[in-house]
Simulated assay, not measured.
Amino acid sequence: MVVASPNSIQTEKIVSINLPTIDLSKERATVAKLIVKASEEYGFFNVINHRIPQHIIDNMEEAGFDFFAKPASQKAKLASNYDSVRLGYGCKNIGFNGDVGEVEYLLLNGSASHISKISTTISNDPSNFRYRVVSAYRDAVEELACEILELMAEGLGVPNTSIFTTFINHPDSDSLLRFNHYPPLPPSLAFGDHSDPQIITLLRSNPVSGLQISLQHGLWIPVLPDPKAFSVNVGDLLQVMTNGRFVSVRHRAVTNSEKARMSIAYFGAPPLNACIVAPPEMVTPERPSLLFRAFTWAEYKKATYSLRLGDTRIDLFRN
């Protein structure tokens, strides 16, 4: 395995920018325009008034902390391999070719059958991390992701506003849920610099800072946690399907020296055999040709897991 050590952030350039927060309760056409603008400029934004009930979020976060409180020997029993992705529990590595850092995670396939199977084995309290808790959260964030993707299509002027959502609400969707747990660790270290290969990511974290995004090489922007918001970032596939109009944002984690941080990410992905290509409406006078050749998610996924974390994958598929 090729690994990279965590980096100290003491000498790096950290800047403060007011990242977009979009109120989904506002007028729909306005919201669609704001989402498109944020996706073009940052590849990232927060959404509030998302209508996901607080008890669904609280139950999921409680389930995650309950799991990570288990003895290491018990958590380690939940590691397994699936299609080049290590599902279940992992510690101090991100993927097979990723950074080494102080993080432990629980990665779940988004399918109902996988969630049902694993949910019966990973809680100290059988009433906590049960199928209903995880599946309720998965259903809620998938619905929110579909709403956001439809707003993106509307804002882009694509007549078929379900063109992106059909990928992630497909019965064979390859979507994932991931818990990341970062224990307190002095001094602050940064690791995991990458972009997400999927279509869209919805992220929720406890009120502890640690996420940073990069708009250009060497310039990092902290994302302050907002208990009312979900963070949304554009993935590689969405950059391809918008013909480069949207930006797949690079991001990383920074450890906190005093408090543990836990985040829960939903990665919306298509079926493995889905063909990824920009629709005709994305070919414009500003972008008169397709920037990327057509490929399947299986092809891109294979390329993703054959490279070291942080390497540029999307350029492999440029025309």
Rank of each mutant, 00 (worst) to 15 (best):
P225M: 08
F246W: 07
V240H: 00
D226N: 15
V247W: 03
N233G: 05
P227E: 15
V247P: 00
V240S: 03
V223S: 06
F230E: 05
S231Y: 02
F230I: 04
I221L: 13
P227L: 14
V247K: 13
L237A: 08
S248G: 10
A229T: 11
P227M: 12
R250P: 05
M241D: 01
R252D: 09
F246M: 12
V223N: 08
V254Q: 11
R245G: 07
L224I: 15
K228C: 13
R250E: 11
N243T: 12
F230C: 03
L238E: 03
V254W: 08
T242G: 14
M241P: 01
R245Y: 00
T255D: 03
L238Q: 04
V247H: 07
I221V: 15
S231V: 05
Q239D: 10
T255V: 08
S231H: 05
A229M: 10
V249Y: 00
L237N: 01
P222M: 12
D226I: 10
G235D: 02
V240K: 03
P227I: 13
V234A: 02
G244H: 08
P227F: 10
A229S: 15
L224D: 14
T255Q: 07
S248M: 04
V232M: 08
S248K: 01
V234P: 00
P227C: 14
I221E: 02
G235V: 02
V232P: 09
V247Q: 01
V254E: 09
V247G: 03
D226Y: 11
G235M: 01
P225D: 10
T242I: 13
T255S: 15
G244Q: 03
V254F: 09
V223A: 07
K228P: 03
G235L: 01
M241E: 12
R252M: 09
V254C: 12
N243L: 11
N243R: 11
Q239R: 09
V232K: 07
I221F: 06
N243A: 09
H251P: 12
V240M: 11
G244S: 06
